[in-house]
C-alpha cells in the first residue's frame, strides 16, 4: 500500500510547525522524533501510564492515543513549554523540586502536564482530588506522596 501522508500545520508551545506526516504516526512519536521535543515520554503506548500526556488546546490527553495528523490546526503544549521563557520554573516545577516529587523523572513530564492543567481548574484542591487527578499517571519510583505534597504546595502558591 502506498504511504498515506498528509501535510499538517500545528502549533506546539506557541511555535508553528508545518510537516508532512504518515497517517499512522502517533502524536507522541511526531513530537519526540520529528519535532525533537523529546521531553514528552512514552511509557506504554496504550493509554494507561500517562507519561506521554500533553495538552491539546489546554486539556490533558494521551499523545500515544492520537495520530499526529489529528493535531492539525490544534494547539499542543508539552513539558518544554512549562517553564517561563527565562527558564523560571512554573510553581509546580518548583514544588516538585522542593518536595522531591521526582526520582527517575521519566513520568514527570506527563505529571506536570496533567497537574498544571488540573491546577488551572482547581486552585484549592483537597488531597483526595489531587490523588484522583493524578491517578491517570503511573509513577513507579515515588509512591506519589511527594508529588501530592508538591501539587498541594503549588496550589497554595498559585492562590497567592
Amino acid at each position: 500500500m502506498d504511504i498515506d501522508d498528509h501535510e499538517i500545520t500545528i502549533s506546539v508551545n506557541g511555535v508553528r510547525y508545518q510537516r508532512r506526516v504518515e497517517s499512522r504516526m502517533l502524536l507522541s512519536d511526531f513530537l519526540r522524533h520529528d519535532l525533537g521535543l523529546a521531553g514528552t515520554h512514552v511509557g506504554c503506548e496504550h493509554g494507561v501510564c500517562g507519561a506521554c500526556t500533553v495538552l491539546l488546546d489546554g486539556q490533558p490527553v494521551r499523545s500515544c492515543l492520537m495520530f499526529a495528523v489529528q493535531a492539525e490546526k490544534h494547539e499542543i503544549s508539552t513539558v518544554e513549554g512549562v517553564a517561563g521563557g527565562d527558564g523560571e520554573y512554573h510553581p509546580l516545577q518548583q514544588a516538585m523540586h522542593d518536595h522531591h516529587g521526582l526520582q527517575c523523572g521519566y513520568c514527570t513530564p506527563g505529571i506536570l502536564m496533567t497537574m498544571t492543567a488540573f491546577l488551572e481548574e482547581n486552585r484549592s484542591p483537597s488531597e483526595e482530588e489531587v490523588r484522583e487527578a493524578l491517578s491517570g499517571n503511573l509513577c513507579r519510583c515515588t509512591g506519589y506522596q511527594n508529588i501530592v505534597d508538591a501539587v498541594m504546595a503549588a496550589a497554595k502558591r498559585m492562590r497567592g
Binding site: 493509554g47 500517562g50 500526556t53 491539546l56 486539556q59 490533558p60 490527553v61 494521551r62 492515543l65 492520537m66 496533567t114 488540573f118 487527578a133 491517578s135 491517570g136
Partner: peptide, 9 residues
Amino acid sequence: IAHPQIRNR
C-alpha cells in the same frame, strides 16, 4: 470511566 486524560478525549 478511565482517567481525566481519557475522558477529555
